[in-house]
């Protein structure tokens, strides 16, 4: 049976709308306890948002709630090696073909980060934005909330696509995090991936349908525990939620170590995701932890402040 493909005009609209509703709702609920006594006497300690909930804008394969301070320029270099299954043959995947991503981010105004990147897998270009909607404070907001949106463009040769729009995938994510203690932070991030084109098949002569839905809902849980002032253990788990007819993506378990300095963050870890592009990871991951399909990866970020 030859897989055929079909296309929808649905695009960005549906996922974006849902996310918008979600975070507006959040704003309303969380905003309610701001009773109008703003003119507190000067002697009272200023209430400030929690800082450094995480050590980087990344936690392994997901974005963290963090948006760097205004004027920050950042460069990311990320690697995902082959799976460790071949052992010494390819030195735990180090010498297997690896996936590489180069990313660039800038924070032009307070709370907004914009960026673009190029990833080796499917020659994917991404454009993305991240906006800090709410920041955790001692008394007012229990959590920080950030929105992350990402559009990816598969730039492989023409023969892989029928329509230009087939190259596009969208990712919307709401990141909710709390610095629970000075050492421990946790975050939960529901996400919606939209894929313009899915594989299909004929289920009756002349009638076809997709093996997977165009929309894919997932949730990620992540945490960091600082073992030293500048070193922490990082963990991240991604759970697919949408059930597709077939080709359901596998969840992702990942864990590693993070070291931060004034200008850098290094993350070294093991996990199942290999694509780096979040929508592709969430929708297409085939590495299953039950089969031991783990791979080694690292993220390195460099920040400059202007």
């Amino acid at each position: 049976m030859k897989p055929i493909t079909y296309n929808t005009k649905n695009w960005f609209v549906r996922p974006a709308m849902l996310m918008l509703c979600l975070f507006l709702l959040n704003g309303i609920i969380l905003g309610q306890d701001s009773s109008g006594n703003e003119q507190t006497p000067v002697a009272v300690k200023k209430i400030k948002p929690e800082k450094n909930t995480f050590g980087s804008i990344w936690i392994i394969d997901n974005q963290t709630v963090m948006v760097p301070i205004k004027g920050t320029f950042e460069m990311d270099i990320m690697h995902r090696f082959g799976t460790i299954k071949n052992g010494y043959k390819d030195f735990l995947g180090f010498f297997a073909p690896s996936n590489i991503r180069l990313g660039f981010e800038y924070v032009p105004i307070n709370n907004l980060m914009v960026g673009f990147s190029i990833t080796k897998a499917n020659m994917t270009w991404e454009g993305y934005g991240k906006y800090a909607i709410i920041k955790q404070t001692k008394s007012k907001y229990p959590v920080s909330v950030t929105y992350f949106g990402d559009i990816s463009l598969d730039t492989r040769g023409k023969d892989n696509f029928v329509h230009y729009s087939d190259r596009l995938m969208y990712f919307n994510q709401l990141i909710i995090a709390r610095k629970i203690t000075p050492k421990f932070s946790a975050q939960v991030s529901p996400s919606l991936t939209h894929v313009n084109i899915v594989d299909g098949y004929y289920y009756e002569p002349g009638k076809y349908r997709g093996t997977m839905n165009h929309e894919h809902f997932a949730i990620a849980l992540a945490g960091r525990y600082k073992i030293k002032e500048n070193m922490g253990i990082i963990v991240n788990y991604d759970q697919p939620i949408t059930k597709h007819r077939s080709n359901n993506p596998s969840p992702n378990i990942s864990f590693g170590l993070e070291v931060t300095t004034s200008a850098h963050a290094f993350q070294f870890f093991m996990g199942n995701y290999s694509f780096i592009t979040p929508q592709r990871n969430n929708y297409y991951n085939r590495n299953n932890f039950k089969d031991g399909q783990f791979l080694i990866g690292f993220n390195i970020t460099r920040m400059w402040n202007y």
């Binding site: 002032e229 500048n230 931060t260 300095t261 004034s262």
Partner: peptide, 9 residues
């Protein structure tokens, strides 16, 4: 915390 991030090196 800031010292060990920014000054210690």
């Amino acid at each position: 915390a800031l010292w060990s991030t920014h000054c210690k090196s």
